[in-house]
Each structure stands twice: as structure tokens, then as C-alpha cells.
Design a binder for these strands. Structure first.
Lengths: 229, 229
DNA sequence: CCAAAAGTGTTGACCGTACACCCATGA
DNA sequence: TCATGGGTGTACGGTCAACACTTTTGG
């Protein structure tokens, strides 16, 4: 490749991931203690530098796989953090991604080996650099987005009950929902497939399992109607 | 500053701006013919390389000021384009911004001198690299955002009439709106201040001018209610 | 006085919210 | 049989889309 722009400055570019999970009660973040200076041993998001042979999405996926073992994860860039002194080491720009994963699918061995931990969203410790700001912004975004897009299902197992789904949305929105109305709303969109199987052990009666049906969602979406909680 | 990350690769980073305007009838984009190879003389968005002494927002503002003379413009980063071969010259990542400006406030001399042109959104020519994709994504975003955030006012003069505002939203959403209901909706949010002055020359009766009231909007927002068209 | 655009009023359908109530089952 | 959470039914109030209607004014 020719050098068309040899006079222009080059920059270090990091990719940082805000990794969300849900454990049936609480939203959680996967965090890790930083292994290199500056700010070694402080809590941090998962990140790495962008390499020459990959685009940003690839780098983010690479990071996710490294820490969780998962390969096809919901992942979306949401903001660049570019303040000149954001990293006390050198000037580094960071492209922040958020990821939504099913905790139980992740490789717990791997997570543990690297010293990563799932931490309740309301118990986040002090984070390095501007990572707290990244978390805050990511939270704000999934709060808004999940009202109109079926993001939530990325955080639940394949099979889930309506009460489980409700708990998830209550955790995301930070508010209680009326269970009768929640059920009607979600079922009225016809994007769930009811299974002939009940959850055991949680309640006496047991709740039916459902699955999110991508095909039905596409139909809804194309018909111009809104998914909306 | 120490060299903490000397082993990591560095990258060229461009900032490209999708600049929207509205001329009372149609959404428009400010486009320019590229002045350097590769793809010299082809239509392009406004862009430049990020410098060492500025963050991304500063760079975007610098670009906007260069082409329009405007200094405090609504500007928001929305996506990074990072495919390895997106620029046939060298590997360059691009951070895309969209800007909403009041055409009549812009410096037409400056715009003309640099050979930039306002072009109807439905008559966009072939653009260099992945710029068409940037435009498409920016359009999609303002379409969604302007339903719930008062973005539209950035594209109108300080004083505007309800029918003008309606025309703007019709251009953004690409659909006709019922004028009686539109009026009721926008007035019910109480974010507009009515002026004691009528528009002349457009209709016989003349429509009252209004102003967007930032303070009232903040109140609405803080009270938890939605701005929604 | 007519045409045209600004602006108001009315209606019926629909939808969200609140809440009462029934159901299934383990202990 | 009772407590518990799952699940259904209903009724009221507000909101929205559609459209008829009134107002203002230049030609």
C-alpha cells in the first residue's frame, strides 16, 4: 500500500468492553484487575490495543473471547473516548463497546484464571482512567435501547420464563413492573414461542418456558410496528 | 510522557462529518469534492485527520468551522468505520460525526470558496470510500433520535412557525403528518414559546412564530416525561 | 367573495394502568 | 388446606388518528 498520508500523525487506539451479564436477580459487569502499569492492580474493563490486521469489531470480539470463551456475542461500539490525557501513560484513544452475554454460557475456568469477576452493577468499585464514565454511558444506552429493541434476550438463557424476563427488565430500568401488564405487553408482540415445559424449583406452580423467536421479531419489525416494553 | 505502550501499533485516524441542513422544504447535506488522491475530485464528506493536540470533538468542530464558519454547532459522534481497506490509500480509521446546522447562519462565502455544496438528501451523488454508508447510518440515527429528542430545532432558524416545524419533521421521517394533530402534540409538550409576530409572504393568514425554549425542555425532561413527536 | 393556509373542536377506537381474582402445586 | 407465585379478566381514563369545522387575509 502506498503512503498517501505520511505526514499525518498516528495514534494508539484501545478497545474497551463493558460486559453485561444477568444472574436472575441483578445486572452484573465483568471486571478485572489491570495487569500492567500505569494503575496496575486497579479494577478495569477488559481491553486491548487495536492491531493492524483487524477492525474494531474483530478486536472487541477477540477481547470477549479471551475473557469468556464465547464466540458469537452481542457486541456494539458506542462511544470514543479521546481526551488527550485520559490515559496517564501515553495518549491513547479508546473505542468503547458494550457486550451482553449469558453468564452461564461463559467459560468460568477462563474467567477465573484471568482473575476476572462478575460484580453487581450497584457495587462497582473505583475503575481506572475514564472507565467509570464508560460504564455509566453504556448503562444509559442499554436502558434506552432495550425499551425499543429486543436486547434483553441476549442476557437470558435460551429458555426463560416471563417472570424471569420481567426481573431482567426491572434490573435494567431500575423499577418495579406490574406483572399482569408486563405479561400482556410482551405476549401481545408475538415474538415469544411458548414451550411445553415448566420451570421447577422456583415457584410451586412453575412457570412455562419461552424462547425469543428471531423470525417473528423480524416480521414485527418489517411490518413497521414497534417492539416496546 | 513515558512510553508505556511502545510495542503497540499506531493508526491513522480520520474524522468525517455528515452535515445536515434544512432549507424549508428538504433535508440537505453539505458535500465537497475531494482535493487529494486517492479518488481526487470525487464527492466526499468533510473530513480531516485527528491531530496530536486535540480530541475527536475538537477535530470535528475544527472541520465544521473550516467549511461553514460556524462555531457552536450540534455535533455528535455516531460510529467508527474501521475496515482495513476502507481507504484505498492507506489504512485509516474514520470516526463519523453528524452535525445539524442552520443553513442560513453558515458562511456562504466560505462554503463556496471551498467548493462545497448543499445537496438534497434524495439526490446524493456517489461518494468516496464508505461515505455513503456513513450518510445512511446518520440518517437512520437522526430519524430515530428526533422522535424523542428535540434535535429538529437545530436545523431551523431561532424563530419558526408550526407549519415549518411540521415540514421539517415530514422531511426527516419521510412521511406526511396531520397538521391538526402535529400542532396539538408539539404544543402539549410546552417547550415552545409563542412570539407576538407572524410570518409574512408564505400564506395569506400568516402563521405565528415560535421559539424553542431550552429551559422548558429541561423541566419536561427532568419531570420524567418524554419529548415525543 | 373566494381560495388557501392557519388554527380549533369533536369523535370513536385503542391502549396502558390498576387491581381483583382464579389457578396450580409443594409443603 | 394454605401459602405462594403464576396467570387471566375487567374497567376506567387518557391518548391518538381522522376529519369536520372556523378563522384570517391577499387577490
Amino acid at each position: 500500500m502506498a503512503n498517501f498520508y505520511s505526514e499525518e500523525p498516528k495514534h494508539l487506539l484501545a478497545v474497551d468492553c463493558v460486559i453485561f451479564g444477568f444472574d436472575r436477580e441483578q445486572l452484573k459487569l465483568l471486571l478485572v484487575k489491570r495487569v500492567r502499569p500505569p494503575e496496575k492492580d486497579q479494577w478495569s474493563l477488559m481491553g486491548d490495543f487495536l492491531q493492524d490486521n483487524e477492525n474494531l469489531e474483530f478486536a472487541a470480539q477477540r477481547i470477549l473471547t479471551k475473557w469468556t470463551g464465547l464466540e458469537h456475542v452481542f457486541l456494539e461500539q458506542f462511544h470514543n473516548f479521546s481526551d488527550i490525557n485520559r490515559d496517564p501513560g501515553e495518549r491513547v484513544l479508546s473505542v468503547a463497546f458494550y457486550a451482553l452475554i449469558k453468564i452461564e454460557d461463559s467459560d468460568k475456568e477462563l474467567t477465573k484464571r484471568y482473575g476476572a469477576e462478575w460484580i453487581d452493577i450497584d457495587k462497582i468499585p473505583k475503575l481506572i482512567f475514564d472507565h467509570a464514565q464508560m460504564v455509566e454511558m453504556a448503562l444509559e444506552i442499554i436502558k434506552h435501547k432495550s425499551r425499543f429493541e429486543p436486547l434483553g434476550f441476549e442476557l437470558l438463557p435460551e429458555k426463560f420464563t416471563i417472570p424471569q424476563l420481567q426481573k431482567l427488565y426491572e434490573a435494567i430500568f431500575q423499577q418495579k413492573l406490574d406483572s399482569a401488564n408486563f405479561r400482556k405487553k410482551i405476549l401481545s408482540m408475538k415474538v415469544l414461542k411458548k414451550l411445553n415445559e415448566k420451570e421447577k424449583g422456583v415457584s410451586k406452580r412453575g412457570a412455562f418456558y419461552f424462547q425469543f423467536d428471531q423470525g417473528k421479531y423480524k416480521k414485527l419489525h418489517e411490518s413497521g410496528l414497534l417492539f416496546e416494553i
